[in-house]
Design a binder for these strands. Structure first.
Lengths: 214, 214
DNA sequence: ACTATTAATGACCATTGGGTCATTATTAAT
DNA sequence: ATTAATAATGACCCAATGGTCATTAATAGT
């Protein structure tokens, strides 16, 4: 996370590790964008933290926005991969799979620094349409697809009586989003038991999907 | 919404309507903050749209942040009032009341420019702790209180078999938040039938609250 | 009329920050 | 060694912006 070059070297000319530099810049940029948002982040600040001169950044990125874009693209994609690998070969019932997906999200995103990246995307996306688009392509559409697939499979196998989740796959991430928002903004006023909340919601959702009493 | 002073007057000295000026400035500020966010909004731009010189803003507000603060405080509070008036004297069953609360939110917030204000709060709050605090005091805590009251009442009257909503009042707004986010960011890729989504969720939630089959 | 008071102005200031580029250090090739 | 190629630098440029204040116009009181 902290990537200020170890001892303050002062080098010039060709350098050994261009990929490392790129990474250092990206790391520093992430830290600053997270803390201050896009508009308030200064290239000077990024450069200082990366142990690099301001001009150097422009050797790796066309401008501030390109840097932001590269950052997002580099770090966002890997998230969904695991889930996509898990779904098609899951042994147990679909209800259990949905539970696991939700829990994985809580553990792997809400419980790590990835949550900060999520926050960055959510807060900057309204102002950068391309950001929403990348996020849609790389994460949201794929996630939705997964949920739909599971929902459909559940119905096909006779495990689910309702197809509500297929029509509205957003039902699954809704409480996760709420938990995210809550812990980001309001936890200091009234802490939320995220685990309990999510489990509670899953009980409710799955109970309804499995047997619609009516 | 649009508040550029009617014809471009050029006045000096004492003026007739100081309250009107204040309002004009606030209107213009709202438009700009919504479109560009706090950091990217310029006082010059606000002044121009308000039909006022930049210096004039400083007669009404101490600085940029105070302006933002006043804006939020002025416009946010009235929202919850209606709901608070409705709840204590609602005639029908509590389930119907919850439905009405959710629908009102969809109609009165998601369906109006208030949604923009909500977006502004949500995107800027992480960077302005005092914003989260105001929003907590004026809206969130009161809203939560209402939901808890309804949940408790429902249980007391024997209408609800589960007290899940009392423990996690966030269960009610969760899908509303999702609908909000979705329509803000992803509607252009895959439109969401908000009404259907919310109703679908309410069915699910209320069915579960009313009779927990188990 | 004349004066005191005050609302409003906008030129101005100081600072900041994105972006450029001539210069310099380092390495690779010959 | 000498040269060519290139990685890195940071002083510099310039536009933009938050904030100030001497000046000016309108009004109220007398």
């Amino acid at each position: 996370m902290d990537s200020t070059a170890p001892p303050q070297r002062r080098r010039r000319g060709r350098k050994g590790d261009p990929a490392g530099r790129r990474q250092a810049i990206l790391d520093a940029a992430l830290a600053h964008f997270l803390a201050e948002g896009f508009a308030a982040t200064t290239l000077e600040g990024i450069a200082r933290q990366a142990g690099v001169a301001k001009g150097t950044i422009y050797l790796y990125f066309a401008d501030k926005q390109a840097l932001f874009r590269a950052l997002v693209q580099d770090r966002i994609s890997p998230v969904i991969g695991g889930a996509e690998a898990l779904v098609p070969q899951f042994p147990g019932p679909m209800a259990a799979l949905l539970r696991q997906l939700a829990r994985t999200f809580v553990r792997e995103v809400l419980g790590t620094e990835r949550r900060q990246l999520l926050r960055l995307v959510l807060t900057e996306a309204p102002r950068f349409p391309w950001l929403a688009e990348i996020y849609w392509q790389e994460v949201v559409s794929r996630g939705l697809g997964l949920i739909r697939a599971v929902a459909r499979q559940g119905v096909a196998r006779g495990e689910f009586a309702s197809s509500a989740l297929e029509r509205f796959p957003q039902l699954l991430p809704a409480p996760l989003l709420m938990a995210f928002l809550w812990t980001t903004l309001f936890d200091r006023f009234e802490p939320l038991d995220v685990e309990g909340f999510v489990e509670s919601y899953l009980d409710l959702l799955l109970r309804d999907l499995e047997g619609t009493p009516s």
